[in-house]
């Protein structure tokens, strides 16, 4: 490579220059993703089965139950914000990543502790027959939407960004299932929380592959 190669590359890039629309700030994009995803999950969940009777009252009368719902919602917000910020070069994500992981761990640990000290009286009341499969159905569109949002930016670590987005997408139905399905900690861990790991992994790999495909041509043939 020489000075002439640098100049040739610069000329090629300048010739390729088109006006571009600057992407919206991460906060706005995250808010749009959250509103649309939650609306979809609530709507689809209502179509496929009733919410647990008395869940609203339990939220008002059991502070720990309300708190675990709140921690779950905050974790969703933090994970999707980390994912979107990671897709913009130079944006700091580490502190928010720690907060997201901390909230996720608290949310999960609450159910592990709940095996011995349950938040609500464990019961089969409100059980949805295929809640685990439903969780995948509910997570898929938000996860796909997140992948599109991520790769339209410039994720330097697409796998990590995708995993964070996948956790957020998987958490929405998991948290919602707390008011839609039966409340029993082991059931929650096995049928509502476990799908989050699968959704996160698949979303991470999808973001990685789509991002690589999107940039493969230009990178393999810089002067072509």
């Amino acid at each position: 490579m020489t000075q002439r190669d640098d100049n040739a590359l610069i000329s090629t890039l300048v010739d390729d220059l088109q006006p571009v629309a600057v992407r919206w700030p991460a906060l706005r994009v995250g808010a749009i993703w959250l509103v649309l995803s939650v609306a979809y999950v609530l709507g689809a969940m209502a179509l496929l089965g009733p919410f647990r009777e008395g869940a609203g009252t339990q939220l008002l009368t059991h502070p720990r139950f309300a708190a675990e719902m709140m921690v779950g919602v905050l974790a969703v917000i933090c994970f999707i914000m980390v994912a979107i910020r990671q897709a913009v070069p130079g944006q700091s994500t580490r502190p928010l990543q720690y907060v997201a992981l901390g909230l996720g761990a608290i949310w999960l640990f609450n159910f592990v502790a709940g095996i011995h000290f349950p938040t609500l009286e464990p019961s089969m009341h409100g059980k949805r027959e295929f809640c685990a499969w439903e969780s995948y159905v509910y997570s898929a569109p938000p996860a796909l939407f997140a992948v599109v949002l991520l790769v339209r930016r410039f994720p330097l670590q697409p796998l990590a960004s995708g995993i964070n987005a996948g956790v957020a997408a998987g958490l929405i139905p998991a948290v919602t299932m707390q008011i839609a399905c039966m409340y029993e900690p082991v059931h929650i861990l096995e049928h509502h929380a476990a799908p989050i790991a699968v959704v996160a992994l698949v979303t991470g790999v999808a973001a990685f592959m789509v991002n690589r495909h999107r940039h493969s041509h230009t990178r393999s043939d810089p002067l072509g």
């Binding site: 490579m1 190669d5 640098d6 590359l9 610069i10 890039l13 390729d16 571009v20 629309a21 600057v22 992407r23 700030p25 897709a87 913009v88 070069p89 130079g90 944006q91 930016r153 410039f154 940039h215 230009t218 990178r219 810089p222």
Partner: peptide, 25 residues
């Protein structure tokens, strides 16, 4: 250097003028 120029070209739509340039680059 050339890979960096290419990446800057591909990522130019993500630069926000309200933020400093160097951390982005």
């Amino acid at each position: 250097v050339q890979e960096c120029l290419l990446a800057i070209h591909q990522a130019r739509h993500t630069y926000d003028a309200r933020r400093p340039f160097r951390p982005w680059m």
